[in-house]
Nucleic acid binder design. Sequence first.
DNA 1: AAGAGAGTCAACCGCTAAGCA
DNA 2: GTGCTTAGCGGTTGACTCTCT
Length: 322
Amino acid sequence: MRRERAEREREESEIRKGPWKAEEDEVLINHVKKYGPRDWSSIRSKGLLQRTGKSCRLRWVNKLRPNLKNGCKFSLEEERIVIDLQALFGNKWARIATYLPGRTDNDVKNFWSSRQKRLARILKSPSKTQHHNKTGNGNGKQPLVQHVSPLQAENFSSPVEVASPIMAQPCSSSYMESFEMVKMFQLPELGTTDLINFDASITQLEFPRKAENPSMDIESESQNPFPQLPQLEPDLALSPESQELIARLEDPSFVEVFGPRDLLELGTGENLSIDLPVLEVQESYASNETKESVNTVTPDTFLDDFPTDMFDHIESLSPSDW
DNA sequence: AAGAGAGTCAACCGCTAAGCA
DNA sequence: GTGCTTAGCGGTTGACTCTCT
């Protein structure tokens, strides 16, 4: 018994852990070249590497595999895809990653957990948000958000608004950066009083063709398979938790963190849709399985991090309040 | 300049399903 | 049918870097 354990310990001590060296990578690559991405455990049994097969596989899948977008931040389009597919599939990172060429499940998972952390941090920091309200340009009288009736909310699904203007920048930046971009526009020139028109204005700046001819997207949108959030009953009593969250939504820092698109999602529930750039997506959405998923949004979706009643009172942003 | 906190990334761990003897 | 091995997946952790105060 004791000998067995000692032997096991000795064996385990021979297993290398931690960061991979370039030489190890080379050995692993050579192995894959010879035998293909399989027989991972044989790498150790042949004495090529002191790594477990599991570790070898992971290294290959996450770092050494060809065509990986290593060191490249998620583009806005990729972010949008992850967000929407997470709402659809739940934490099925490997599955979501199949819609993102060059991305691994680990990438997706890391992206999502970062996002969740950011969200958690924002929701936990009332002091900071209060500070913003006091020191910001606004006098605090004008609400950051305006009430949107269910009827108005329906209009939010216009093609222009659905196709966010600052998407589709390969290998670009996060929501924060894109929001910086938005802020760079001279807001008064946009001559709008609500975010929807504001959004459309940016669309005109960036994608004039699309803005001139919104019907370009109608077709794709009508096929849009992504889940639409259910219309919630207005005038429901808010839980204290929701009231606090709504108070924070009025804070510009919330927008800075999640970006206007996220706020739109929260505000209307009509924007949980994207123009999917990747192949199989449309196809798979047509499947029965996916149709089911659409109707049963998983409990761990981004939106489910919020109390359900809070959406009743979320309203659209006025650019002048930014 | 230094420390704290946040963000990012790579790697490990535990669990499960599939394949096989 | 059962048990073992392997591959794959999702959760978690820890090191490192960046940013802010």
